[in-house]
Simulated assay, not measured.
Amino acid sequence: MQTLYRRLLQLMPRLGVRVTDLAPGTALVSRRGRYSVKPAGKDAWLVSRDGSAGGWTSVPLGESGARLILGKASAADERKLQMAAAEYLGTQHVAAMLDLYGVNCVLDVGANRGQYAKRLRKHGYQGRIVSFEPTEEAFARLSEAAERDPQWQVHHCGLGREDTTAEIHVGWNTMNSLLPASDYGRDRYKRFHTTRTEEIRVRRLDAVLDEALDGIEDPRPFLKMDTQGYDLEVFAGAGERIADFVGLQSEVAVLRLYEGSPPMSEAVATYEDGGFEITGMYPVTREAATGRVVEFDVVMMRSKAVQ
């Protein structure tokens, strides 16, 4: 005897909708002819509109059980695909480290419009985020992004080696920097050809840490830095309080975009001297013509602090 559920599904086509069985107890109900379903591996289907599923390929990711669904355009652009995958995997790795080390406060230095914090939330991090952004336009967007999140604080300042004021190059979108562009940077990015500056407030990390951690019992902070060549200055401003951090993330340069920014080897060695060890490295940008990596996001944790 048919169940009422099955009888209703059989009735659907008469009402002008399409029913596609996916698995026992699971079906796709759509307007007739507008959606197609293509198998994408065991217990997985690709649902696409107007029959556009024909150009998609399902790729297994090793023995993880995960699969990557590629369209023709994405499969053809290796560099773009690699960058998108690196961003996703990097954020996923950070989220896993935050959980493993019991992080309950992320200091987001160089927050721009809050992109990093939003990605952490999407990957499940629910603890406190304290974001620092010095430029007027980006800070306004950051404040708007954080206003409905009670666990997300924002501060209108930059961080550096000393408490001071400074001129920052703006108009470079997500690449605003306290450092001038290098010759290589100007060759790579047209946005560096014109610039204006904005006066900002700069504070030391050790001067703002107590406020950032206020009210957290047994604080276990994580330091994220993306300051366009200025990360070591932020790190220096932590002084002895850097020992409070269980981990960090920094953008390190293989090919320097800014004058005076440290090479990757110097940055990593400095962080290692502070007691941190590499758990992951993910390319941020690559040259299309040569395939060379320009910058990496490096994730480092204090292994002795694991819970």
Rank of each mutant, 00 (worst) to 15 (best):
R7N: 10
Q10P: 06
M12P: 03
P13S: 03
L15R: 10
V17E: 11
V19D: 01
P24K: 00
P24Y: 00
T26L: 15
P39H: 00
A44K: 02
A44Y: 05
W45N: 10
L46E: 02
R49V: 11
D50S: 15
A53L: 06
G54T: 04
T57M: 05
P60S: 10
P60W: 06
L61W: 07
G62W: 04
G65W: 06
G65M: 04
I69M: 13
L70S: 04
G71S: 11
A75I: 05
A84Q: 12
A85M: 14
Y88P: 09
G90Q: 11
L98Y: 04
D99P: 02
G102P: 04
V103P: 02
V103W: 06
V103G: 07
V109D: 03
V109G: 01
N112M: 03
R113G: 08
Q115D: 13
Q115S: 13
Y116L: 09
Y116G: 00
K118L: 14
K118R: 15
R119E: 12
L120Y: 00
R121G: 09
K122S: 15
K122I: 14
R128F: 05
S131R: 01
P134L: 01
E136W: 14
E136T: 14
F139D: 00
A140M: 10
S143C: 11
A146V: 02
D149Q: 09
P150A: 08
Q153K: 10
L159H: 01
G160H: 05
D163E: 14
I168S: 12
H169Q: 07
N173I: 13
N173G: 15
S182R: 04
Y184W: 15
R191W: 04
R191I: 13
T195Q: 15
R203G: 03
L205K: 10
A207P: 11
V208T: 08
A212E: 09
L213D: 08
G215H: 02
G215Q: 08
K224V: 06
D226Q: 03
D231V: 08
E240D: 15
R241W: 03
D244W: 04
V246D: 06
G247C: 05
S250F: 04
A253W: 07
L255A: 15
A267G: 13
A267M: 09
V268I: 08
V268Q: 00
D273C: 09
F276V: 01
E277H: 11
E277G: 11
I278R: 06
I278T: 12
Y282I: 02
E287C: 05
E287T: 05
G291K: 03
V294E: 14
V294Y: 12
F296A: 02
M300S: 11
S303E: 14
K304Q: 15
V306A: 09
Q307P: 14
